[in-house]
Structures are given as structure tokens and as C-alpha cells.
Design a protein around this nucleic acid. Structure first.
Lengths: 149, 149
DNA sequence: CCACGCGCTGCATATTCATGTATATTAATT
DNA sequence: AATTAATATACATGAATATGCAGCGCGTGG
């Protein structure tokens, strides 16, 4: 299952320095995901991983400065693809996605660095956004709805 | 005939992991419903089944569908089996389970679609329920405690 | 009693999607 | 610059799923 593999890739990359797709392929194989380099190339593109300049290891692009516009574009795409429902609750925002997609959408939200957002938590099909206050929560809902369309 | 078949599909899907329409076709044939994949494609659309990303198996969409009573029954069972502790915090409710059981209980909670619940997030042994407000959070705690016993 | 409309279905085929293979392209190394 | 390593991509394949079309059975209004 592809989405599982994508999550595994994020997990691997987060926990150890992976410097080539071949290396990543081996790590994934150890976890039971057997695929070729070509597939990883596509996965990496889809996840938006980049090579850290310091040591050449892959990592999510949010950590280095990504141009805001790029991140927002990706967020819009992710939203229109995954978002099922969005609702503010006090200073929180609850988003629903299709099964197994919450992690990916959560990542896209993190990357876009919305100023109103303090942090996010993603489960399987639910994301919780913590905003600074009620006003900001409402603002986030509006902003995300706009981006989704 | 059709409605019988639809019910059979729900029953099959609920009791075993079905990962393709072909597989489903075989299960149904064993129960006396002989139809083609094309028909199942239409049935699945009508029932609103989706593929769970965890294992690629079909399941009723957690967002809608599934008879309330069934889901509530399953929830009661899951609660009595897994729930260790439950506590409201403002408009949130924090539940503790045994290790690795939070996902299962979280799923059961989602499926039962309690009106007070906006969403849930499950980790390994902790579930966070987001309610609409403090009152609702208290109501959820009471309801779940009742169901558990 | 009949012609018509409509829902349901199968058949055949189109579409979608993930992936591997082979190769082109780009980057690094010497 | 030449060589090699790393990555991206064109093309093809296979699996799963969706769908256009035609036939069938059934109920209804004529």
C-alpha cells in the first residue's frame, strides 16, 4: 500500500540520515516495503523531500526555508485531494480526511507555516490544528477553505 | 435480491478483510449471490465503501453510513475491553487504553458517530476526543462510561 | 393484453493507477 | 574532461476498477 510506504519513508528519513535513494530502498526493504529506485524517486517528489545541504541527507523541505508560495501551492493541492470536512472548535480546528491521509495533509499544513497555527496533530483520518485563539481558529478555517477550492 | 446482496456485502466486509472486488465476488458467491465484478463496482459505490489505507481492505466510510445501533454495540464491546481511564479536560476528553489498543478503540468511537464528538485522534495508548464544548465533553464521558459497563 | 419505461445486470472495454525496466539526465569525483 | 554515482523519466505492463451498451424481467397505463 502506497500511503503506508510514504509514511514509512518519512519515518525513516526522520530517524536516520539517508543520503541516497538506494540507501532508502534498503531501509524500506528491511521494513517490508520492496520497491525500486524509480518508485522512490517518485515518492520523494510527492513528499517534497529535499537534500539537506549540510550532509546531503534527505529531509522534509519544511526544515530548510521553502519559498512560501511553493508550500502554499502544495497545501492547496493536498487540501483539494484529501480534505473531507473542516470545523472549528474553540481555539482548535478539526479536519477530516480519507482513511490514512491525515498524516500527509498534516505535513502539508505544517510546511506552509501558517502564522495562526501553533501546531498540528494527525491521526489516521483526523487532524487537529491548535490555533492561538478562537479568532485565529476561524481565520485558519477560512484560509484553508479558500485554498481547497 | 439486490438489497439482500447489499446487506451481505456489508456483512462480509465487516467480518473479514476484503481487498478487491474479485475477492468480494468469491465470498458472495459462497453465500449464493452470483454476480460479476461490474455489479460489485456499482454496489460498492452505492454503499459508499472506501478502502482503508492501513491494509487496503474495504470498509464502510467512517464519516457516514453504518447503522448506529451496530456501531454502538461494537463501541460498548471495545470500551469494556480496552478502556483503562477516561477524563475530561475542558472541551477535550482524554482516554487511556492498554498499549497498542488506542487505534482500535478510536475507530470504534469514530464509527459510532456520537453527535457531541467533532473528531478523535488516537496514538498508541491514548485517545483524544474533541467535543464541541465543555458540556459536550462531560456528556461524552458519561455516555462512554455507561456504554463500558 | 400489450407496448413502454425502468431498474438491474452481464459483457466487453475503457480508465486509472502503481510500478518495473531501461535509459536519459544531472551531479559528483578524480 | 572523463568517469562514475545518483536521480529522473519515457515507455510498457498488470491489476483493479469504472462504464457504455444491450438484453431481460417486471409493473403500469393505455
Amino acid at each position: 500500500m502506497k500511503s503506508q510506504r510514504l509514511l514509512a519513508i518519512l519515518d525513516v528519513v526522520e530517524h536516520e540520515a539517508v543520503r541516497s535513494q538506494e540507501q532508502l530502498r534498503q531501509r524500506l526493504a528491511a521494513r517490508g516495503f520492496v520497491v525500486t529506485q524509480a518508485t522512490l524517486s517518485r515518492d520523494i517528489k510527492e513528499l517534497g523531500l529535499v537534500k539537506r545541504s549540510a550532509d546531503g541527507a534527505y529531509q522534509p523541505s519544511s526544515i530548510e526555508g521553502t519559498p512560501q508560495t511553493t508550500a502554499l501551492g502544495a497545501l492547496g493541492k493536498a487540501l483539494s485531494e484529501y480534505l473531507v470536512n473542516i470545523e472549528p472548535v474553540q481555539q482548535l480546528v478539526v479536519l477530516r480526511t480519507g482513511a490514512g491521509q491525515a498524516q500527509l495533509l498534516g505535513l502539508a499544513i505544517d510546511r506552509s507555516r501558517l502564522p495562526e497555527v501553533v501546531g498540528t496533530l494527525a491521526g489516521d483520518d483526523t487532524i487537529l490544528i491548535i490555533a492561538r485563539d478562537v479568532q485565529n481558529a476561524l481565520a485558519v478555517v477560512k484560509k484553508l477553505k479558500d485554498l481547497a477550492s
